[in-house]
Nucleic acid binder design. Sequence first.
DNA 1: CTACATGCAAATCCTTTGCATCCAC
DNA 2: GTGGATGCAAAGGATTTGCATGTAG
Lengths: 147, 147
Amino acid sequence: MDSAERILQQLRQRGERITIQRRMVIEALCEDCDHLTINDIQKQMESRGYELDEATIYRILQWLKAAEVISQTDLGARGIVYELIGTKRHHHLVCLNCHAVIELDDSFADQLREQVRHEHDFEPRVDHLAIFGWCAQCRAAKAATKN
Amino acid sequence: MDSAERILQQLRQRGERITIQRRMVIEALCEDCDHLTINDIQKQMESRGYELDEATIYRILQWLKAAEVISQTDLGARGIVYELIGTKRHHHLVCLNCHAVIELDDSFADQLREQVRHEHDFEPRVDHLAIFGWCAQCRAAKAATKN
DNA sequence: CTACATGCAAATCCTTTGCATCCAC
DNA sequence: GTGGATGCAAAGGATTTGCATGTAG
């Protein structure tokens, strides 16, 4: 994965220290391009025959968040997930009932960003939003049981 | 606060059981019209000379959430806050640096709701959103230190 | 060489759960 | 009276912290 290399380069240039552990976490995030929980990351490491301490993972993720390399999103029942910001930005609809996760294009956030910038002089960092609600199936099911 | 009474009435009509504890939590949420953390609620109770078990508070808040009487929002460093949905709906900008919380009108969410409903057949429950980013002051401060 | 990252263990914080008791309806 | 809510204590899970050791620059 050369995108891992690219990220490592950037971090190095910013004067960040690159360790084996940091490198491995970044590579894990690059490969499994989906959202990963702490646990996913830990298991990924193990499957490669490398044990990485939980505390260290937390510290590395904090570091990557501060460096704005990854986003952190609370998907509710699905837990907290981490993902590289670099790729195509997107968000998620999360069903409050069945916990389905639907991908949502980033375009809807444009208006939001503009409004917030202009009206509040605030620079939003809307990297990965989770919007909760009811999916079509669960709405139908709910309506059917209602009375 | 008659709004507490109104909420209690509604819940009663839905067949919900009203206890002293539930009543007190609802009253606390009505009085302190701001966002309250679990801790705030607990302290509020204490200041009125009433001790309420933490577990009970959690159970009551879950109940109120399920009944869609309150919203729950993770304000990051500011913790998880609860607030009555009834009043004028609004959202928040939260500075990642200084943790300032800025109120944001609900109107920006209209377009979002429409888009999500139409394009994804998903009924969003956007009661109280937290949008993270950088406030004007912190941006200025950051730019100043940059190099 | 030195400052900073890691591993390990313990601590902390937040939230949930089991169960006996109590109370709203 | 009875089902559901509470209080208490304990468990559980996620995240953080202190400190000795290791290592990147």
